[in-house]
Amino acid sequence: MRNTARWAATIGLTAAAVCGPLTGSSAIAAPAAPDSLYAPSALVLTIGHGESAAAVSPARAVTLTCAPGPSGSHPAPALACAELRAAGGDFEALASGTGNVMCTKQYDPVVVTVDGVWQGKRVSYERGFANECLKNSSGSRLFAF
């Protein structure tokens, strides 16, 4: 008889735990566990010669994955990911930084693009520069490939 009572109590508590959230009661259900411990961060960066990405085909392209760890075909993935994290994912802040570089006023337009996912959010970025020197003058490792 004792086993029957124990089984009845176990089954009753299990049913309440499983079916309770389905009844629409005001009890707060525990949130679902995340699929992973980090938000995905995987990007494709391109450089092309021209005024806009729509008008040119990329001359170079690299991949950059920052989570769970830095990797990809980018020449300095750890530095690029660290810069991007420090900037809070703001590509414009990294592209418009000023370094101590003097550039000529030669007009040979270069366009960089970033497409992918940054910390779980879809991102798409495009920035044009008058020449390669101005692109590199920001001092950012993100666009140095």
Rank of each mutant, 00 (worst) to 15 (best):
R6D: 14
R6T: 15
W7L: 13
G12T: 15
L13H: 05
L13R: 05
L13E: 05
T14D: 03
T14Y: 02
A15P: 02
V18G: 03
T23R: 15
T23V: 15
A29Q: 11
P31K: 10
P31C: 11
A33S: 14
A33D: 13
P34K: 05
L37Y: 04
Y38I: 08
Y38Q: 06
Y38W: 10
P40I: 05
S41A: 05
L43A: 05
L43R: 00
V44L: 06
L45R: 00
I47F: 01
I47L: 10
G48N: 09
G48S: 11
H49F: 15
S52W: 03
A53N: 11
A54L: 10
A54R: 11
A54E: 13
A59L: 04
A59C: 04
A59P: 00
V62T: 04
T63F: 02
L64H: 03
T65V: 15
C66K: 03
A67V: 08
G69L: 13
G69I: 12
G72I: 08
P77T: 12
L79K: 12
A82G: 09
L84I: 03
R85G: 09
R85Q: 12
A87Y: 07
A87I: 14
G89T: 12
E92S: 13
S96I: 00
G97T: 11
G97F: 00
G99M: 10
V101S: 04
C103H: 05
K105L: 14
V111P: 05
V114Y: 00
G116Y: 06
G116W: 07
W118A: 08
G120V: 09
K121P: 05
V123E: 10
S124N: 12
Y125W: 08
R127Y: 00
A130R: 12
K135H: 02
S138C: 09
G139Q: 11
L142T: 02
L142N: 02
F145D: 00
